[in-house]
């Protein structure tokens, strides 16, 4: 079965579709007639907003990795661990599976999220080479998976709430927790600012581009 990459879009038909309830209204309508949500044919300044949140996330990601995430005080020592250090330690202590889960949530997901958002946003500048199905898949995965990075911030909160045994052992959250929490929130906003409809607009543009007569 042939995949129909071309479709009549609401915008091409002079309409704007509501992303909440699917209702369509004439282009230029501000509020959805059904659910009263704000209507945008495409998010205004979608890519600019995406990049702004992306950069904010990248800035807070630096201290998140340099400063300690968790500080453990026992009678003899005070031990500080960073995000990467804590996960590596977990693997060394024998729990490879949980160590990998933590590495996945706090290292692999955040870094690949930066790369994936940047990839989609950059690819949209070069519509002729774009495969919209691939880009849309990447976008969906990023949108779905981003919130799971919050695990690390929760773990530190749980451990510091639980381990307060006076002089014997106390766990305190480090400054990286707030930086990393900000990174997760900012990159979630970055992904939410990206309008997926832009991905599919590129297929139309590319088609228009091809049908345009070449100049000698």
């Amino acid at each position: 079965m042939a995949r129909s990459d071309q479709a009549l879009t609401a915008r091409a038909a002079g309409l704007v579709g509501c992303r909440h309830c699917g209702t369509v209204a004439p282009l230029g309508t501000e509020l959805c007639p059904r659910c009263k949500g704000r209507l945008h044919s495409r998010f205004p300044h979608s890519l600019q907003r995406t990049w702004a949140w992306w950069i904010a996330g990248l800035i807070t990601y630096v201290p998140a990795n340099l400063y300690p995430m968790m500080i453990m005080d026992t009678f003899v020592t005070s031990y500080k661990s960073t995000i990467v250090g804590g996960a590596i330690e977990l693997i060394h202590s024998g729990d490879a599976f949980v160590g990998l889960v933590v590495i996945l949530a706090s290292v692999v997901i955040p870094t690949s999220k930066f790369l994936a958002i940047a990839y989609v946003a950059l690819a949209l500048r070069n519509p002729r080479k774009v495969n919209p199905h691939l880009l849309h898949k990447v976008y969906e995965v990023v949108e779905f998976i981003g919130r799971w990075s919050m695990i690390d911030v929760f773990v530190v909160a749980i451990l510091s709430a639980l381990v307060h045994l006076g002089a014997v052992a106390t766990i305190l959250p480090g400054i990286a927790a707030i930086s990393f929490g900000s990174t997760v929130i900012f990159t979630m906003f970055s992904a939410l600012s990206l309008d997926p409809r832009l991905i599919w607009d590129t297929t139309e543009e590319a088609k228009r581009e091809r049908s345009r007569p070449r100049r000698a």
């Binding site: 879009t9 609401a10 915008r11 579709g17 509501c18 369509v24 919209p132 997926p196 409809r197 599919w200």
Partner: peptide
Amino acid sequence: ELIACPQCDAL
């Protein structure tokens, strides 16, 4: 009776 796809705007 019309519905627009929230992801790609197809009508």
